[in-house]
Amino acid sequence: MTVMSLEEAAEMVENGSLISLSGNLLFRIPAAFVRELARQGKRDLRVMKTAGGYDVDLLCGLGCAKEVIAGFVSFEVFGLARNFRKAVEEGKVKYSENTCYSVIAALRAAAYGIPFIPIANISKSYFVKERGFKFVDNPYGEEKVLTVPAIKPDYAILHVQKADEEGNALIYGPWFEDVLMARAAENIILTTEMIVPTEELRREIDAVWIPKLKVKAVVEVKKGAYPGACPPYYDMDFDMMERYASLDEEGLKNHIWEVRP
């Protein structure tokens, strides 16, 4: 069975897994799933995303993550991601800083089934050396070309608006990197605002870009992106995000049990 509870789906993610998370900043983030990972006390997760917010901060603040591969982690109008910052400053989490473009490139290489991919020259940026991105000879031209290695997530964790029981899913609005992650990852876990019959999903086939292949779990979680937004159904919870932005580790421990699922 692909349809399961949030608890069962989160149990599939082993400590130390590399997970990539859907959405961007506070939009269509797999927030309920991330809280469940924290409630289960996961450890040593490697978390990948172009621009993280609540999801990345929470996993860092509760000691679930050991590494963040991203280009940006913040809350936009709600200020800086306090728990992420603290964990990185204290050396508890390694921030494998990238630029969003190089995170995308690493996912593309994985999606294309190739070991590395050439990118535009961004070699003045300090993290190029720190990440070990290498120049190679261009076999077709003169100048050397910068490359990034493929990164293949163990799980793409995607929160979507609609899915069927088998794991075909649609996304309304911007995909961000989600369709790419689905192609690149070894496995996919879907949380969805609603499970709908396959016939109903087919009526919106133009939006259905996640086929059931590789989908290991489908979990119906209404308001699964809360306190983030999941348009067109709900916007962010501004009051909750303001409060969240000031929570420390103790506050986070309460938060994951208070905000259910």
Binding site: G71, S74, T99, S102
Partner: peptide
């Protein structure tokens, strides 16, 4: 800091 998002490129 949060990181440079897309800025490097």
């Amino acid at each position: 800091f949060p990181g440079g998002a897309g800025g490097a490129l």
